[in-house]
Design a binder for these strands. Structure first.
Length: 209
DNA sequence: GGGGGGATTCGG
DNA sequence: CGAATCCCCCCG
């Protein structure tokens, strides 16, 4: 695997979340996402306008928006669109390509391992909070620039690259809210995050360093 | 200053 | 299916 691929350029992110989301499929580092359209979407954090927490989502494209929820979980989004507009893609799943040992450790999967079952790499990043845990992403990474890959102090750089694998011609789609089929995933990929047996999003590849 | 609820996950 | 477990945000 070639690791010297450049981060995706700012222009990749400088479009609507709905344009960016399906094209994130099969990019390396991320896989699986969901688009939110800010002010027009009542299920977005941004629908009531900018707050201290959601400031990043209103900022320039190509940055991470990371928030904390349920008292224990983090979720990461890719900020899209133009500065001043709330637009982001929630990263719902990733297919581990490398760094599985780091991911296992970060998620402490060994302690939860059922003795009768082998490790399943599918459990590492098959959910928005799981992938953050596997990658060690938390609120200190909020605002990180995915284009320059500049990180805050004591933080690892985070970015997304294209290894030449095109996004699926016909991505799977599902909805979270009615009339908003804004979840895109790679059909048939076992890493796609699921809930109660229903496909709800996810799918692409990743590595951690 | 108080209270309701959350872009989830895991175990029972 | 409910608990875990902070923090954000709205309201008074």
């Amino acid at each position: 695997m070639n690791l010297d691929l450049p981060p995706l350029p700012r222009s990749f992110y400088a479009r609507t979340a709905l344009d960016v989301a399906p094209e994130l499929l099969n990019k390396v580092l991320i896989r699986g996402h969901q688009a939110y359209e800010g002010a027009n979407d009542p299920s977005s954090h941004g629908h009531r306008g900018m707050t201290n927490r959601t400031r990043t989502m209103f900022g320039p494209p190509g940055h991470l928006y990371v928030y904390f929820t349920y008292g224990m979980h983090h979720c990461a989004n890719v900020v899209c669109g133009e500065e001043g507009v709330c637009s982001a893609v929630l990263l719902r799943a990733v297919a581990p390509l490398a760094g599985q040992n780091i991911m296992h450790r970060a998620r402490n999967t060994a302690s939860r391992r059922r003795s009768s079952e082998p490790f399943r790499s599918v459990d590492l990043c098959s959910g928005p909070a799981r992938l953050c845990q596997a990658y060690g992403l938390d609120r200190r990474d909020d605002g990180a620039d995915l284009v320059t890959a500049s990180a805050a102090a004591n933080r690892l750089p985070t970015f997304i690259v294209d290894d030449g694998t095109p996004p699926p011609r016909q991505p799977g789609r599902s909805t979270r809210a009615p009339n908003r089929p804004w979840r895109f995933y790679v059909t048939g990929d076992p890493n796609v995050s699921r809930s109660r047996g229903t496909t709800i999003g996810g799918g692409s590849r990743s590595r951690t360093t």
